[in-house]
Design a binder for these strands. Structure first.
Length: 800
RNA sequence: GCGGAUGUGGCGGAAUUGGCAGACGCACUAGACUUAGGAUCUAGCGGAGCAAUCCAUGGGGGUUCAAGUCCCUUCAUCCGCACCA
């Protein structure tokens, strides 16, 4: 019927030559910044899932432009990091070359979809004049004391030969390859993210993230209020410090537990009479994978530290100390006070090892289980008689502070960000080590520290970065004293480049600054940020942290980067399972564009269902959308001159403008498409439609199917290109029907429908309802109790 | 275990937020036009029933003139977190 491929190419070229989507940094218009997460240009090419979210935000961008906004809708490439490096190793090409090729493929695929990105602002995180600024910002962290080098026991993947952040080692397995993670000590660059816990929490108030995304952020930060309490060690001046959220139960402490890695074990190895047994336990624990260790359902294990005791500071009781792997090294102080009567885990442990259980809160049956509820305090010295948790905690905190044995503290799950990676394909950390001067930052004038061109970029067996093998790169001079010195060979994590990229889009060609202040002041927060739910914790947290740090140091003018954050659902295979090569249910967007056209693919992916929910692919569904576009195309033969809406269509056109506008705004694309289908159905019923009718349909459909609508607009000589048109306005009065069919119920069951006029009063409607044949039949011989008339909705007659 | 989400025809999904459940699309059925149709058009399409009507939004209960929508309870599926002291 028509050659969609030709039409698509034609209009894509038109938009390009007319700079239709280039955003201006100097505009009188209101700004609107729409951002989609930039992709990894992976070797497997674009996924239909990308098409969904890009098209969705593209529709929003196109509508906003027509509404008169200056829209920034940029695209770039997150090209550093493990996936790119592993792809390069596997395919025996330099990562630089692999990335270049993959970007080319990705970009071509994206352009074939007619997405209205502003390509003049495109960059990759691997561009030297981008990562120069990533390095520059790292130096700011260093300069402000927010980056430090620390010896940390890190998560080590023996398969990938790389250190992983806690986040990447979730569940005790490597996120990339699934191999169990081991522990290894290593000097690491670390960013003090934990210092920002409260700011990251409070900052959420300035955003309009989806609730589930906010919740995910809050949980990840994991703030809990409690107390640090000092337990003096018996026959020593040393203290064992614990963190507890339940200081009110201090009188119920019958033992303490330290993590197997706790320093106290080594420190008191001479005093612990069963030290060999303890060491054996520790070794066993370290051999266990994280997944085994953190399996909450497994039976508790542990060893008593014989000969070592602590003193309960509130009642001077002598308390035994144990070590067990249910106490984590990296949370709190790595040691706990155990209150078996009122904590499930402690209860289980005490039961197993026959340790005393002392009740301090009444209300449960501690011979059966730990009681964690509220109740009257007993056996509790100063707390006796208190009846609720809040008051007892408050009282105990006061008592602890007055007596100098503890203090109120807040603890966070959020840890510092381990920033080093022993990899080739990342931003080199711009630091130099000098025997004389220690760590010295690379001077700003020498940035970027670039990656050398080498032939081997595979990881070394020693765990060092491949960069360590390149003497010519490693050896340099100290910027401070001029003596021979060595470069840091670790690189940054792939999260680094994505932690400020939205700022760069504002001013992507700037060679003097990472972004100009004017550009940041003009564009401000990202208005709409779309990404996958899998990035709603880490990436979002890192990005917010990074941005907030820049803000605190006067480098950006606003504290939170993203106003709204939304998440798209996944597109599943036709069988309802996640698309994967092994399942053979992968749909290639290129094939779909070839067979049905970009417009049909775009329309279908928006029509597929609720944007936030997962949806199964259906090629028949796509065909249906192609048919819909064909029907819109055929309407062109009905077009006659006319600059006003046809009388028969006036109301529905106004209604549709309203619906489509609101739906695109609120990301309810599926119902927007459906409304346009309904409008098309109405057009088809008539022999003739006016140019005005058709033009409005085409404009409303344009954000969804931009090519065919432009073509039809031109073919029918409906005026200037749609991309330059204004979004249509609607007349609220015309969205309300003069007459309407409403249901008439008798005792809640629909018995008839009547046609009512908008001007009728309740009495008229009531009489009309009572007069209906079928209604009469149902109320005959019965007493009318009351008649409920809801204007424009329903009539309900209650009879007895 | 804790937290979050979801549950509506054969399928994807609508339902102005308490007001005619199933919009729109897919699949399917019958017919028309055709040498042909994976094109197009017309009609039908939750279940039962000739029909009037009855039943139906995971199950059970409740509030209401009126419940997919609100409350209680229960089941199922998916996704997070997972010994966080």
């Amino acid at each position: 019927m028509y050659n969609y491929s030709e039409i698509e190419k034609k209009w894509q070229k038109y938009w390009e030559t007319n700079n239709s989507f280039i955003a201006s940094n100097n505009s009188e218009k209101s700004k609107y910044f729409i951002l989609v997460e930039f992709p990894y240009p992976s070797g497997s090419g674009l996924h239909v899932g990308h098409v969904r979210s890009y098209t969705a935000l593209d529709a929003m961008a196109r509508m906003r432009r027509m509404k008169g906004y200056n829209v920034l809708f940029p695209m770039g490439w997150d090209a550093f990091g493990l996936p790119a490096e592993q792809y390069a190793i596997k395919n025996k090409v330099h990562p630089k070359e692999a990335v270049r090729r993959n970007i080319e493929v990705f970009k071509g695929q994206i352009q074939d979809l007619g997405l209205s990105f502003d390509w003049s602002r495109e960059f990759a995180t691997t561009d030297e004049n981008y990562y120069k600024w990533t390095q520059w910002q790292f130096l700011k962290f260093y300069e402000k004391g927010m980056a430090y080098k620390g010896k940390k026991e890190i998560n080590w993947c023996p398969s990938c030969k790389i250190g992983l952040s806690n986040e990447e080692a979730e569940g005790g397995v490597c996120e990339r390859c699934g191999h169990p993670v081991e522990k290894k000590e290593k000097e690491q660059w670390i960013l003090k993210m934990s210092e920002y816990a409260d700011k990251l929490l409070d900052g959420l108030d300035e955003t309009e993230f989806l609730d589930r995304i906010k919740t995910a952020q809050v949980n990840w930060i994991g703030k809990s209020e409690g107390a640090l309490v000092d337990f003096k060690l018996d026959n020593s001046d040393d203290y064992l410090k614990v963190f507890t959220t339940r200081p009110d139960t201090l009188y119920g402490v019958t033992f303490m537990v330290v993590s197997p890695e706790h320093e106290i074990i080594n420190k008191y190895k001479d005093k612990i009479t069963n030290i060999s047994e303890v060491i054996k336990y520790k070794e066993e624990a370290s051999k266990k994978s994280e997944i085994e260790r953190t399996d909450a359902t497994k039976e508790k294990t542990g060893v008593k530290l014989e000969g070592l005791y602590a003193i309960n500071p509130v009642n001077d009781e002598k308390i035994q100390i144990w070590t067990s792997d249910y106490v984590l090294t990296n949370y709190g102080t790595g040691a706990i006070m155990a209150v078996p009567a009122h904590d499930e885990r402690d209860y289980e442990f005490a039961k197993k090892f026959g340790i005393d259980i002392i009740e301090v809160i009444k209300g449960g049956d501690i011979s059966k289980e730990a009681y964690t509820g509220d109740g009257e305090m007993v056996n509790s010295g100063v707390l006796n008689g208190y009846t609720n948790k809040q008051d007892s905690i408050k009282k105990m905190l006061e008592y602890l502070e007055e007596n100098n044995i503890g203090k109120k503290t807040t603890n966070y799950r959020l840890q510092d960000w381990i920033f080093s990676r022993q990899r080739f394909w990342g931003e080199p950390i711009p630091m130099i080590y000098c025997e004389e001067c220690g760590w010295v930052p690379v001077p700003v004038k020498d940035l970027p520290v670039t990656l050398p061109d080498v032939t081997s970029y595979e990881p070394t067996d020693t765990g060092e970065s491949p960069l360590a093998n390149i003497d010519s790169w490693v050896n340099t001079t100290c910027p401070k004293c001029g003596k021979a010195a060595k470069r840091e060979t670790d690189t940054m994590p792939n999260w680094a480049g994505s932690s400020w990229y939205w700022l760069r889009y504002m001013d992507a060609q700037n060679n003097d600054e990472f972004v100009s202040n004017e550009a940041m002041k003009y564009w401000g927060m990202v208005d709409y940020y779309n990404g996958g739910m899998e990035h709603a914790t880490r990436h979002l947290l890192y990005a917010r942290f990074w941005h907030r740090f820049l803000y605190d140091n006067g480098l950006v003018p606003f504290p939170e980067p993203f106003k709204k954050r939304v998440a798209h659902g996944m597109i599943l295979g036709e069988n309802g399972e996640k698309m994967s090569k092994s399942k053979g249910n992968v749909v290639n967007p290129d094939d779909m564009v070839k067979s049905y056209g970009a417009d049909a693919l775009r329309t279908y992916e928006l029509f597929i269902g609720d944007y936030e929910k997962d949806a199964a692919w259906s090629e028949n569904g796509l065909k249906g959308c192609k048919r819909f576009l064909d029907r819109v195309y055929r309407l062109k033969d009905k077009v006659v001159d006319g600059f006003v809406y046809s009388k028969e269509l006036d109301n529905i056109i106004n209604k549709t403008i309203k619906k489509v506008t609101n739906d695109i705004e609120s990301m309810k694309y599926n119902t927007a498409v459906s409304a346009l289908m309904i409008l098309t159905n109405e057009f088809e019923k008539l022999d003739k439609i006016t140019k005005a009718d058709y033009k409005t349909l085409l404009i409303l459909l344009n954000p969804i199917a931009p090519h065919i609508t432009e073509e039809l607009n031109e073919m029918c000589e409906l005026g200037k290109a749609i991309v330059n048109c204004n979004w249509p306005e609607y007349d609220e009065a015309k969205t309300i029907d003069e007459t309407k069919e409403i249901g008439v119920q008798v005792n809640g069951k629909v018995r008839a429908t009547i046609e009512v006029n908008i001007n009728m009063d309740d009495e008229e409607i009531k009489n009309l309802a009572l007069d209906h044949e079928n209604v009469k039949r149902h109320i005959e011989g019965k007493e009318i109790v009351k008649v409920i008339v809801i204007k424009g909705k329903i009539v309900n007659i209650v009879v007895k």
